[in-house]
Design a binder for these strands. Structure first.
Length: 142
DNA sequence: GCCAACGTTGGC
DNA sequence: GCCAACGTTGGC
């Protein structure tokens, strides 16, 4: 079981959109590394929902609810995606600036691989961020 | 809105 | 298989 981070521009697909849905396709990814990360996901894996451009902060937690499958928004066979569902809000969103200001989080892909839109999160990082967000009992993948 | 970083494409 | 051109992402 593993932890991840999903980036979305809120004017394209926001956390509110995600919460209004159920088990929704994380489609539109056209980057091999991001796709490979989704192929490695298992049902029950958890991820942060990050608002890029506007907000630049983690605002919620999602759960992988369907394994990688062909992206229905393209006929190109190269692109697969998982489905995710909202789990809970982060009581206090955690901003990119906070992540950059936290030495323990300096190696996060969010900092080191700015453009990767679906990225892995280490368990230690997951726990640190959940606590920063005000979740005293962080949800665990699985 | 700008632009740096960087991933992808395509000519050779 | 290299690399220049191009397109996109995303912070600022």
């Amino acid at each position: 079981m593993a932890y991840w981070l999903f980036k979305s521009e809120p004017n394209e697909w926001s956390w509110d959109d995600q919460k209004a849905g159920a088990c929704e396709e994380w489609d539109g990814i056209r980057n091999y590394q991001a796709r490979n990360n989704m192929r490695a996901m298992k049902i029950g894996d958890l991820g942060f929902f990050y608002h890029s451009n506007i907000g630049k902060e983690m605002v919620g937690i999602v759960r992988v609810c369907a394994l990688s499958h062909p992206d229905t928004t393209t006929d190109d066979e190269r692109w697969d995606c998982v489905d995710v569902e909202a789990v809970c809000d982060l009581p206090r969103p955690v901003t990119l600036a906070q992540v950059k200001a936290t030495p323990e989080l300096a190696e996060m892909s969010l900092v080191t691989s700015m453009r990767l839109s679906v990225q892995p999160v280490r368990e230690e990082e997951w726990l640190i961020i959940c606590r920063m967000a005000g979740l005293d009992d962080p949800p665990r993948a699985g």
